[in-house]
């Protein structure tokens, strides 16, 4: 039976069964846990708590770069190479949600044809869902679940626009920034603070004219930038479609796993940021629920629109709720 069977299944399958399935390597349990955690279904935090100790072994690679740079095709090629070297790979492919309908078109699988059927690879498409700081945490959660499932490498492929990118790659151990010839001065993508987060530069579509100029541009920027004493990130030319330069790229990634910033203070900084993000979300959710129930938020908006008050006074008047929220956090 197809019709209606699913609703029953969701309710009847408990977190415990799913967690057990993940531990046993069941792909469906893995996929369902990801959904439930992504949806923040009741119990998601407990599930993450029990998955957390199982992980910590996977290396997480973030891939970012402007739209059309070939991130998906590159992910496909890199994942295939990793599998050939004996690694298992999880891929999180992020695409934007529409801010209007809340829907999303997730098309990264189109470019990952070589790897979609490999049993060593699990691909999950993820929509940004426009959540406050949620993308980073969402990707981090899924990466952690894939890690607990036993994937050796997790690749997070980002949307490729805006400051969100910088956020999402914070979930990664190694970040590669993909550039292509023919986009302005070749380093447009590096303007948005992405320079600071790259461990590795890839000049993709290197069979095209202008690739060497892009490499030179990046090299020039690296020469004048302060890298905090770390070695300069390598710049690698690839043509993902023609499968050129992929071996060198994966060599560099593997080398990065060993030498990367994984070991230093970066790790502590990351954990700190994650805690703050989680707390922020919890408090905001709590406040929003309260405000929506009491109608205080609507009243405040009305007051501001009628010029009786201002946003700053509203925040001050609502602050007691925050204290209440922190108290309830302490007791639960």
């Amino acid at each position: 039976m197809y019709k209606g069977a699913r609703v029953e299944t969701i309710v009847s399958i408990s977190w415990e069964t799913l967690l057990d399935g993940v531990k046993k390597g069941n792909v469906r349990s893995l996929a369902r846990i990801i959904t439930l955690v992504e949806n923040r279904e009741p119990g998601w935090k407990d599930a993450m708590k029990s998955l957390y100790p199982l992980g910590g072994k996977a290396k997480i690679v973030g891939i970012t770069g402007s739209p059309g740079a070939g991130k998906s095709t590159l992910t496909n090629a890199v994942a295939r190479d990793f599998v050939a070297r004996g690694y298992t790979v999880g891929i999180i492919a992020v695409d934007p949600s529409s801010p209007f309908s809340g829907g999303a078109l997730l098309g990264d699988r189109l470019r990952m044809r070589d790897v979609v059927t490999l049993p060593e690879i699990f691909i999950r498409s993820m929509a940004t869902r426009g959540a406050l700081g949620g993308l980073c945490q969402g990707a981090r959660d899924i990466a952690r679940i894939l890690d607990a499932f036993g994937k050796d490498v997790v690749i997070i492929e980002t949307v490729g626009v805006g400051q969100d990118e910088v956020e999402v790659v914070k979930a990664a151990d190694l970040v590669m920034v993909v550039c292509v010839p023919g986009q302005g001065d070749g380093i447009q993508a590096l303007k948005a603070g992405i320079m600071e987060i790259a461990d590795l530069y890839v000049v993709n579509k290197a069979d095209r004219e202008g690739a060497d100029e892009v490499v030179a541009d990046i090299g020039g920027m690296l020469d004048i930038s302060d890298n905090g004493g770390r070695p300069q990130p390598p710049v690698i030319k690839t043509s993902a479609l023609a499968n050129q330069g992929i071996t060198e790229l994966v060599d560099a990634l593997v080398q990065g796993f060993e030498s990367g910033r994984n070991a230093d203070s970066w790790q502590a900084q990351r954990v700190k940021e994650e805690i703050l993000t989680l707390v922020e979300t919890e408090i905001l959710d709590y406040l929003r629920e309260n405000w929506e129930r009491t109608g205080d938020l609507d009243k405040a908006v009305e007051g501001i629109l009628e010029k009786q008050t201002d946003p700053y006074s509203v925040v001050d008047s609502l602050l007691p709720l925050i204290r209440e929220a922190s108290r309830s956090k302490e007791t639960t």
Partner: peptide, 29 residues
Amino acid sequence: GLRDAGFEVIYTGLRQSPEQIVSAALQED
């Protein structure tokens, strides 16, 4: 159209084998 209706649509494109389709459906839940 389904995206605009608020769904998350995973589009896998042309010439998919039944195995590929079902494997994608399972991974994407």
